[in-house]
Each structure stands twice: as structure tokens, then as C-alpha cells.
Design a protein around this nucleic acid. Structure first.
Lengths: 125, 125
DNA sequence: GTGAATGCAAAACCTTTGCAACTGG
DNA sequence: CCAGTTGCAAAGGTTTTGCATTCAC
């Protein structure tokens, strides 16, 4: 548990958006100027590995990172590229929404929705 | 509608796996040795653009392409990295499984499951 | 003290682009 | 014809890696 790792982790916990590694790098560089991008990648990987944060991969965009560990889906705005957490409907667990092949072992479900976020929808009017 | 484009399209329609652009390239190169990887990318992009095929992005892996246009989810094996189509449970449309933010316009839902595919699960025993 | 983490630069990887030559309709 | 496509090579952007240095415990 190094200072860099702690800093990356705390930055992510204080972010409600879903920053990319490069964005995390810019933000933590304010507190620790010597930190390098490779270290940010290392720390993020480590934190994902121990389950402290989640990695969110949408389309071909850079990976984003998320401190919200509750099960949830992601909404991806096609207009501003922002990512919002969205809640799952109760009683609609992802595990019930697909027919798994016989013998398959599911470990992780991911639901993503693409569209126009409320802010962009408002601006378009 | 060029021969290259037709070839890429037909190759994909005859594939039940989910080949990457590089894999499509290798396969079509057997029929047309002069085709280039950039052209395969171009053709795939065009076909995705007109809705003739679907692009499947899972994690940070290379994009895969899919000729199955029916709504379906994808199962991604963590052991062999293969991708299987899986059916949605009837009555469990993705649109009912999440609570969209007020004012958001959803356009596309994607469900992905990660785990161990039946073949790999069998081999592990 | 020692094994792991850092920082830097360079490499790796997938994908896109610029451009000249070509071709399908 | 001629707009659009191809093929090639080179560039682009994200992520990883090699390695010497430094650090946390």
C-alpha cells in the first residue's frame, strides 16, 4: 500500500464520473507531481485485481474506472461520451435475463445502455 | 458493393464464431490473396454502418464481428476467450431490467456475461 | 535488507489515415 | 467517366513492458 496507490484509490472514490486512466493521472498529478502514467495504470490494475474498484470498458474507448462496487449497469451517452451509473430493476437480476448454455459457469454480468443522457437531451431541444 | 466487401460479408455470415478483423483477414485472404487488412477494416466498418453486421466489443480485446442480427447477448469465456451467442429470456427485455435516468433516451442495450464456457468447464474436470 | 513498486522511455498492439492507383456501375 | 474503394505504409492512441532506482515494511 504505497502513497501512489492510496492516492489513486482515493481520487477514484471521490469521483462520481468514470475517469479514464489518463484523467486519473491528471487529477492525482495535482497532489503528487512526480507520479507517472505507468504507475497510475499499475495502481488501477492492482486495485481492479483485488476488487477495490471496477474497470468499465465501453465500445473501443479508453477504459474507465469506477469506485461503485454495488451491482449496477452503465449508461453511455453517445453525444457527450459521459458514463452514468444506472440501477438495476429489482427482481431483474442479469442472471435471469439470459439463457446460459448448459454447463457454462457465469461469473460476471455486464449491462450497458447507449443513448442520449438527460443533459444532452435537454440541450438538443 | 465490391468483391472485397462481398467476400468479407459472406465470410462473416458463414462463421458462427465471432472473428476479429485479423481473423477475418486471414480467412478471406485464402480466397483473395491481394486483399489488405485495412480493406478488411474498411469493409467491416461499412457493413456495421449499414447494419448488416454487428460489432462486439468485450473488455479490451480486439473488436469481434457478428452476423447474427437478432437481439442476443454474448458469453465470453475467460479460459479460451471464445464468444458464444446467448439468447435473452423472453419477457426479460433489457429495457425492463434497468432504471433509466429521467429524460435519458436509450438506443442500444448490451448484455455480456463472462465465465467459463461449457467446453472449458468439461476439460477442467 | 529485500521484494515489490515506481518512473521513464520505448515497445506493443489494434485501428485509422493519407495518398496514389484502380475499378465498379 | 469519376466517386468511391483498394492497398500500402506510416501514424495514432491506449496500454504494457524492461530496467534501473527507490521505497515500504
Amino acid at each position: 500500500m504505497t502513497p501512489q496507490r492510496r492516492l489513486v484509490y482515493e481520487e477514484l472514490m471521490n469521483s462520481n464520473d468514470h475517469p479514464t486512466a489518463a484523467e486519473v493521472f491528471i487529477r492525482v498529478k495535482n497532489s503528487m507531481d512526480s507520479i507517472s502514467l505507468a504507475t497510475v495504470y499499475n495502481c488501477l490494475d492492482t486495485l481492479v485485481g483485488v476488487g477495490a474498484i471496477k474497470q468499465v470498458n465501453l465500445d473501443r474507448e479508453p477504459s474507465r474506472y469506477c469506485g461503485n462496487l454495488n451491482p449496477h449497469a452503465h449508461f453511455h451517452c453517445e453525444s457527450c461520451a459521459s458514463v452514468l451509473d444506472i440501477e438495476l430493476q429489482e427482481g431483474a437480476e442479469a442472471s435471469k435475463s439470459v439463457k446460459l448454455p448448459r454447463g457454462a459457469k457465469a461469473e460476471k454480468f455486464e449491462i450497458a445502455v447507449r443513448g442520449i443522457c438527460p443533459k444532452c437531451a435537454r440541450q438538443k431541444k
